[in-house]
Nucleic acid binder design. Structure first.
Lengths: 145, 145
DNA sequence: TTTAAAGAGTCAACAAAAATGAATCTTTTA
DNA sequence: TAAAAGATTCATTTTTGTTGACTCTTTAAA
């Protein structure tokens, strides 16, 4: 049972962007801050952009920002979109050759459990994993003109 | 997000044993039935025995049987015991070097979701994943002297 | 209209984890 | 006491995930 580091990084990038909502942040900056190689991080960011969580502005003076306010981004959604392979066991796929398939109910039971996992994560918006200090900052900024 | 095939096999072995509660089943037989190598399956069975789900009787005429009736074995318990590494993300471990650690609440959120996953599996006893036909057989056998 | 700053994509190398099975050892009971 | 069962160890192979170099494309500022 693992979430790929890819997904882990994605969440951290989002948290970082949420903590810097008032400005554009470059991949360069994040890669330095998190001590991850730029090109590696790029792939993570890319997927975040393709999935509509982040807006990437190219060209001089460009950078990244959240596509929506952090209150409207559910952690569950991010994990679902970033984890490409959610087949918990072989028999989730079409080419299963498990000899119990006909009779066993395992697949449904595991699928239900996976839903429970995501349902739990869906309840949590990005703004709630940011940490108190950063969340407070978010409130202050909202009041500013 | 994956469960290892190891765990998958473990569940299948248990289902098979539950479907043959009235007799001893050898690893040999299971390996033939599931088309898995004997020595590989052995490791799975071994772990099942060490965790008290299965009783292994050695020597001539020996074999395997469930240590408890299938109604008393929760799927969640099996998965928990078979999956050795339940650290969803790096920061679950002690040596985490995530630079957000101090402030971010991700760890707790993911841990809660993982609990929800297992809570869902804990509700399901082995007897419920066996398939209707086999379960019916179980009832009949219970009534026999 | 050029240039530099940004993201996008491709590719190959590397590392870690999981799966597999051969060979050998131990226990036990018919 | 021999044969049938599980137990253990080890090495190999396969798969998956991680990493980063290199090159391409876009775009806004100078």
């Amino acid at each position: 049972m693992h979430i790929t580091q890819h997904t882990d990084y994605a969440l951290r990038v989002l948290i970082f962007l949420a903590s810097n909502e008032h400005r554009l942040v470059t991949i360069q900056e994040i890669s330095e801050r998190f001590e991850i190689s730029r090109s590696h991080l790029m792939k993570v960011v890319n997927q975040l952009i393709r999935n509509g969580f982040v807006e990437g502005l190219r060209g001089k003076g460009g950078g990244l920002r959240l596509a929506r306010p952090p209150q409207q981004i559910a952690v569950g959604d991010v994990v679902r979109k970033m984890e490409s392979d959610l087949a918990l066991v072989e028999c989730f796929t079409d080419q299963s050759r498990c000899l119990l398939t006909a009779t066993c109910q395992l697949k449904g039971v595991l699928a239900t459990a996976l839903e429970a996992f995501f349902a739990s994560l869906d309840k949590v918006p990005l703004s709630e994993v940011m940490g108190p200090a950063q969340r407070a900052l978010l409130h202050v900024l909202k009041r500013m003109p």
